[in-house]
Computed example of a mutant assay.
Amino acid sequence: MIRTTAVVGTGLIGTSVGLALSSRGVDVHLIDIDERTAHVAAALGAGTVSAPARPVDIAVLAVPPHVTSKVLTEQQSRGLARTYTDVAGVTGPAYRAVLSGPHLADYVGGHPMAGGEQPGPLAARRDLFEDRRWVLTPGPATSQSALNRSLELVALCRAVPVVMDSASHDRAIALVSHVPHVVSALMAACLENAPAEALRLVGREVRELTRIAGEDPQLWSQILRANVSTVAEVLGDLATHLDATLGALHDLALDAPEAQERGLAVLEDLLHRGQRGTSAVRGGAVDHGTRSETVSVGIEGRPGELRRLLSVVEEFKRHTTGINVEQCARPSGLRIRIDALPPTAGLLEARLKEEGWNVLAPC
């Protein structure tokens, strides 16, 4: 059982870890080369600014990716903790740092899939990790006790643990996080000198696409450097698709029916693949390896009734995978089918019955 923790690095993530653990009764020691930052974290309630008198149960290294392996080696040499984990986001470099040392069994790589656009302890929240995935990457020599402590740490932060090997994690994160950040930055850079009349037309689509480009450039350059080969590989695949799309657009601009037909086929294929990828992402956001269950609700077509039902479903949206509306045999009758993961489906059904809805009603 985790009773004591050391958090090394008191930025957004480290302070949020300290806040989450302190709220669960864990004694948290805050360590940072910038004492001012550590004292800000302590003032927020993340722990106390002090080195522990004896080894803590687990140390969380929340330092920039390019120094994670160095700090890990230093703290292991000092005997700071029984178990060490980090939040570096790229697990390969840190794991390689302990390959030749005596502390292989004590280390579990980590990557909480949470963050924010603003750095520093003032942006920290104790619920930052709630219901978010937290990847753990134990190595072949990692002890069961070290993995168990790391899993308990994730549970104390109310996150969802995902255990992967280091190489698979770094490949996956390049595809779903690192390259999307580069694409966001590229699109945002195109807007840097955009004319005022274009910027006046910016809507939700552009804001969503460029939002993550506003995060700390220095931190992201370190993240990309730590995972450089895999990011380059994924970007190479993306460049191939961009070249094909550019070729299709050139074909469409030609005054030649065959070229136009060829270009249109390439574009339609791309857009259909994008649509399927979007469906995969939406399903993946709630997929825990189980199939969705359907909750059916019968309603009358009175004004405002559907909106009232959807306001209840909205509370469970994180774990729902789809909503469909069917016309019943009765002219005014509708059946709403809500697909959700099994735990959420049961909770949603109970809530709807409690609210008086006609659950599992036939059409």
Score class of each variant (00 low, 15 high):
residue 171 R to L: 15
residue 120 G to M: 01
residue 115 G to V: 12
residue 83 T to S: 11
residue 55 P to L: 08
residue 70 K to W: 06
residue 83 T to Y: 02
residue 140 P to I: 05
residue 106 D to I: 00
residue 340 A to D: 04
residue 162 V to I: 13
residue 144 Q to I: 01
residue 182 V to L: 05
residue 354 E to H: 13
residue 66 H to T: 02
residue 11 G to Y: 06
residue 259 A to T: 01
residue 136 L to A: 05
residue 20 A to R: 02
residue 84 Y to E: 00
residue 31 I to P: 02
residue 110 G to N: 10
residue 168 S to D: 03
residue 101 G to A: 13
residue 109 G to F: 07
residue 321 T to H: 02
residue 195 P to S: 06
residue 187 M to Q: 09
residue 321 T to P: 01
residue 3 R to L: 14
residue 224 L to V: 15
residue 174 A to F: 06
residue 327 Q to I: 11
residue 241 H to T: 11
residue 183 V to H: 11
residue 345 A to K: 05
residue 40 V to K: 12
residue 75 Q to N: 08
residue 183 V to S: 13
residue 179 V to H: 07
residue 293 E to H: 11
residue 249 L to V: 10
residue 349 E to R: 15
residue 261 E to G: 03
residue 97 A to Y: 10
residue 110 G to T: 07
residue 38 A to G: 00
residue 309 L to N: 08
residue 312 V to A: 13
residue 283 G to A: 15
residue 269 D to V: 05
residue 181 H to M: 12
residue 246 L to M: 15
residue 243 D to P: 08
residue 333 G to E: 12
residue 31 I to C: 07
residue 104 L to N: 12
residue 357 W to K: 00
residue 272 H to F: 10
residue 166 S to F: 00
residue 274 G to F: 10
residue 28 V to L: 07
residue 95 Y to L: 09
residue 29 H to W: 04
residue 278 T to S: 15
residue 165 D to R: 00
residue 291 R to D: 07
residue 135 V to F: 05
residue 6 A to H: 04
residue 51 A to D: 14
residue 125 R to Y: 09
residue 261 E to W: 06
residue 193 N to Y: 10
residue 176 V to T: 07
residue 182 V to G: 01
residue 226 A to N: 03
residue 96 R to E: 14
residue 209 L to K: 09
residue 226 A to F: 03
residue 117 E to W: 07
residue 305 E to N: 05
residue 95 Y to R: 08
residue 180 P to C: 05
residue 344 T to I: 13
residue 324 N to P: 03
residue 161 P to Y: 01
residue 280 A to N: 09
residue 255 D to K: 10
residue 105 A to W: 00
residue 55 P to S: 12
residue 151 L to T: 09
residue 314 E to I: 10
residue 297 V to L: 08
residue 148 N to P: 05
residue 137 T to R: 04
residue 109 G to Q: 10
residue 211 R to N: 14
residue 57 D to F: 10
residue 126 R to W: 06
residue 132 R to S: 09
residue 25 G to Q: 11
residue 38 A to Y: 00
residue 168 S to M: 03
residue 12 L to T: 07
residue 52 P to N: 06
residue 68 T to I: 07
residue 66 H to G: 00
residue 144 Q to N: 01
residue 6 A to R: 04
residue 333 G to K: 04
residue 114 A to L: 03
residue 57 D to V: 10
residue 9 G to I: 07
residue 287 D to G: 15
residue 160 V to H: 04
residue 105 A to R: 02
residue 89 G to H: 08
residue 124 A to S: 12
residue 297 V to R: 08
residue 41 A to D: 01
residue 18 G to S: 00
residue 6 A to T: 05
residue 291 R to L: 09
residue 9 G to K: 02
residue 349 E to N: 14
residue 220 W to M: 11
residue 61 L to I: 15
residue 120 G to N: 01
residue 330 R to M: 03
residue 78 R to H: 11
residue 268 E to T: 14
residue 204 R to G: 11
residue 71 V to S: 10
residue 248 A to C: 11
residue 238 L to N: 03
residue 356 G to Q: 05
residue 227 N to W: 01
residue 282 R to V: 11
